[in-house]
Simulated assay, not measured.
Amino acid sequence: MHIAQDDIMQESYPTVLQLYKLALLVPQSTAVVERGFSAMNDMCTDLRSLGQQTLDSLMRINLYQEELLEEDLELVVDLFKNKKERDMPL
Rank of each mutant, 00 (worst) to 15 (best):
V32M: 07
L63P: 01
V33G: 06
N82F: 07
T45E: 01
L69F: 07
D87R: 11
I8R: 04
K83V: 03
L25F: 02
Q28M: 05
N41Q: 13
A31I: 12
T30A: 02
G51S: 10
C44I: 01
G36N: 00
H2R: 12
S57W: 07
S38Q: 14
I3S: 07
T15D: 13
P14L: 06
T54H: 06
V16C: 11
A39M: 06
R35S: 15
E67D: 14
A4E: 15
D42S: 10
D6H: 10
L75N: 14
D6A: 03
S49H: 09
Y64I: 00
S38V: 04
P14D: 08
L24G: 14
T54G: 05
A23H: 14
F80I: 15
L90T: 14
Y64G: 04
P89Q: 10
P89R: 09
L22R: 11
E66R: 09
A39W: 01
D42Y: 02
E67G: 12
E34V: 12
D6W: 01
P14V: 08
D6K: 02
A31K: 08
D42V: 02
L75S: 10
A23Q: 10
V77M: 05
V77S: 00
A31H: 10
L68E: 06
L24V: 02
A23R: 14
Q28A: 03
T30P: 00
Q28C: 05
E70V: 08
S57Y: 07
A31P: 00
L22Q: 14
E70A: 03
Q10K: 15
L50E: 03
L68H: 03
V16A: 15
P27Y: 01
D56E: 07
Q18S: 12
M59L: 09
F37C: 03
Q18E: 14
E71H: 05
K84N: 08
L50K: 02
M40C: 09
F37Y: 06
C44F: 05
E85K: 10
S29A: 10
L79I: 11
A31F: 04
K21F: 01
D46Y: 02
A39K: 09
P89S: 15
E70D: 10
N62K: 13
E67I: 05
E67N: 05
A4K: 08
S12L: 15
F80C: 06
D56Y: 13
